[in-house]
Amino acid sequence: MSVQDYIRERFFPHIWCPGCGHGTVLNNLVRAVETLGLDKNEIVMVSGIGCSSRIAGYLDFHTLHTLHGRALAFATGVKLSRPELNVIVPMGDGDALAIGGNHFIHAARRNINITAIVMNNRIYGMTGGQFSPLSGEATTATTAPFGTIDPDFDTVALATAAGASYVARTTTYHVQEIRKRIAEAIVHPGFAVVEVMSQCPTYFGRKNKQGDAVEMLRRYKEGTVPLDKQPADPEKIPRGVFVQRERPEYCKRYEHLVQAAMTDGAALT
């Protein structure tokens, strides 16, 4: 199949600004699905609110465009109900880790087999350039005209501590990595987090004098380093697979619980 076979062309053109990184994520998400040879009927994509969330509508899967921050909660209902479906949840940084932070850590704690993609552009784009919990200190935004005093989360460390069993980071400059990481995350039997640093030239770039999309991509190229090379380059942001571990998966555990409950069922009514 070609990439077009995964896209709802009826709903184009998309809403993203010229130079936005989210289209790169969409492209490589589709290619990851194609590489894995998944049936479109077996994929449910659940998103929240924001620029990132629109990715769901453009794709020819079962798509559920929900509430700000709540995508993982809806997705948990879908997945527990139908564990055989592949559930993919694209989220923005504010969506996943500000308003949705509670659902993020609890989905990770349960290790439910969902693929979470955090499209991190360090800004609220849809509402016009406010800082997010991933903006970092001294970032300029419409709600931080004097620079943020808010420290940022490290998505990888947070996901790891909360219990995610696959955690990776890449950027929109490293397109082959996006495809590979998303494919690995989908196949991984547990809660998988892929953080994709994605440029927002319209708001983050402009407010923080980071140049246009090309310049921002150059920063991703020069400002990040593969995980194994980071010790020699501690100033740069590491990319790669940080966590890949075996933990009991939630829906599998629920199956065992059902078997136990059915065995003891008579005693329980």
Binding site: T66, A75, N102, H103, H106, V258, G265, T269
Partner: peptide
């Protein structure tokens, strides 16, 4: 009762998540 009937039961992290999860499940 639900697991004993083969149904699904989940205690969510908050009230909001509970409402969202049932909507997701209803769609299936």
């Amino acid at each position: 009762r639900l697991p004993a009937n083969g149904g699904k039961f989940i205690q969510m992290e908050d009230e909001i998540a509970s409402m969202c999860a049932v909507i997701g499940a209803s769609l299936t």
